[in-house]
Nucleic acid binder design. Sequence first.
DNA 1: TCATTTAACGTTTTT
DNA 2: CGTTAAATGA
Length: 701
Amino acid sequence: MDIQDSLNPAQKQAVVTTVGPVLILAGAGSGKTKTLTHRIAYLIENEGVWPNEVLAVTFTNKAAREMRERLGSLLQQNASVRHFMPWMGTFHSICVRLLRIDGSSVGVPPNFVVYDESDRQGLIKQAMKQLHITDKQIRASAVSSAISSAKNQLLGPAEYRTTAQYPFQEQVASIYERYEHLRREAGALDFDDLLLEVVGLLRHHEAIRNKWRSQFRHILIDEYQDTNAAQYAIVKSLVGEERNICVVGDDWQSIYSWRGADFTNILNFERDFPGATVIKLEQNYRSTSAILEAAQNVISKNTARTDKKLWTDTPAGLPVQVHQVYDESEEAQLVAGRVGSQVAMGARRYGDFAVLYRTNAQSFNLERSFLQQRIPYQIVGGVRFYDRKEIKDVIAYLRLLYQPNDRMSFSRIVNVPTRGIGATSLEKFLIWQGESRQDIIGALTNVESANGLTPRARNALVKLGGTLRILQAKVLTETSPSEIIETLIERTGYREYILDGTPQAEEREANLSVLVSDAKNYVALPDFLEEAALMSSVDTAEDYEKVTLMTIHAAKGLEFPVVFMVGMEENLLPSSRSLEAGQAELEEERRLCYVGMTRAREELHLSYAARRAQFGDFRFNMPSRFLSDMGHELMVAPSFQQPNNDDDWSELPDFDIGDMVRSSQFGSGEIIDVDGMAVTVVFSSGQTKKLNVEYARLEKI
DNA sequence: TCATTTAACGTTTTT
DNA sequence: CGTTAAATGA
């Protein structure tokens, strides 16, 4: 089979135009991934390009994995099979690889570790503490996003200070400075540093830049509308004299400007790379024309955009359906009910459905209804597997073994499991360790010579040091990651620590087993650590037997036969923040709405509630303006009946003293006190808990 | 000085 | 319900 066979003319052109800059404006559902993979296959098969001369950048690890698989089967069908692959991955993972090789030129240690958002905020809190800035007045998360956007604009602490105007920015400048100092000491890089250091590497080291330029003879960038200034700088540096750069994107689907993404990068591509071939993919293969038309009506209200006209030759299909409901729990019931009946009729499988929402908080009610109606579901995003406490603990141990200057990780695990080392002892130890010019593990084993520590703390530290030293030896002899983890869990007493007799113990242990089997996929510890840090919450494997629940952001690039978009209300979509912020932000919300709608292949349902519990009380939001933008071809489903009781708590069962209840967490018990939302329950296990009926899923029995 | 108990809080979107 | 920070007790 020829690589070009299944392609339409525009796609074919995108595949065979292999010389010079190429801009592919790919509308939603226009076969973008297919085109990209075919292009790579074509380069390798027909143009004699070696796989390792190709650099393909994707937006998520999942997209990279998918592309790798597709490319594998594409190349296998053809004569010559090469068992190695192009460089594929997110900007972040590519940068990790470059820095492992050449990072020493810009002062990045070869064994650096990657800090995620919560690590970064932890370090910011430490920096603030050292500067005696209370985290009451400035939130660490605010500092974090300020630092992040500074880094995304390629501003170091000094440059940032010169731009500071307000007292807040002055303070951030100091924290930023301190943070960078601590981060360097720990041998760690945060997400933004990965990009920033590579920018510096390529800018200031001509030989290295030229090396990579001649290595990557063909560069492909997916989701180019979501690149930020740092990523843009990397692209510009890597493109060599041949200028074989191909970017794919859709300004209509730019939804990450709050993260520093700048879709003018795609609008300026022709200016940056003169003589570029521009190819528009406008035929949509995904959605029915009813869905496509409604989506097009929404997006066309934006002013800052390119002109495109998506078309399809598929039939109109069912009209887009709008459902008005009374409140969020009725909304959830409606969705779950629809899913349940369609599956019961045999018309669909659970995996055919996706429910999309603006904020993660909205998943709660949906989950409850799905549980009640016994419909299997999976949440994509939300809490990452690698964000669970037991997992982060083990990762912290591993990081410390690999990078024994990582104070953050050390502080996390020094008293986990409990060893009798509290805040005071830790601080004393760290001060001494800092002065003694040894790394943490070395300092632990020599801690006898430290003074000021209580004998109890000293003994505990020595013992910990011994254990870590043994484990560290295993890292150096390149024992497999899974083996290291297993030894670690035993030797540190971590297994005993999580088996504390509570009902969650089993789940925690199961999570550790998953971690061990995950680790079996990696030969060396650094590879595993990198994956753990860069694995995003949307990178979870899909399950075809479950309904998918996720944010609209997380749904980008996916498609489903039936999509429900819930919470189509003013102040939610568009969000209240965007309404306050202004026109540009509102246009981004509109794009977000467009992205959500175009995920649907056959059926699209939109719902809005008259009343919604938001920010602690009840809001009465207007239907989203995007609904009226969609045109008149919508089917408005029968409106809700106002529940006959006007009690605010109608969905929550009434609880009285003496009632028997069941909790998924604590088992069954008896209510002994009721105080507004707070209910005191004595459980059969003997423990007494004060629970909030709004959050605890208490079931009356 | 450390560990356990109690109170307060939760709302964008994420590599 | 989870997590986190303060308060309390050993």
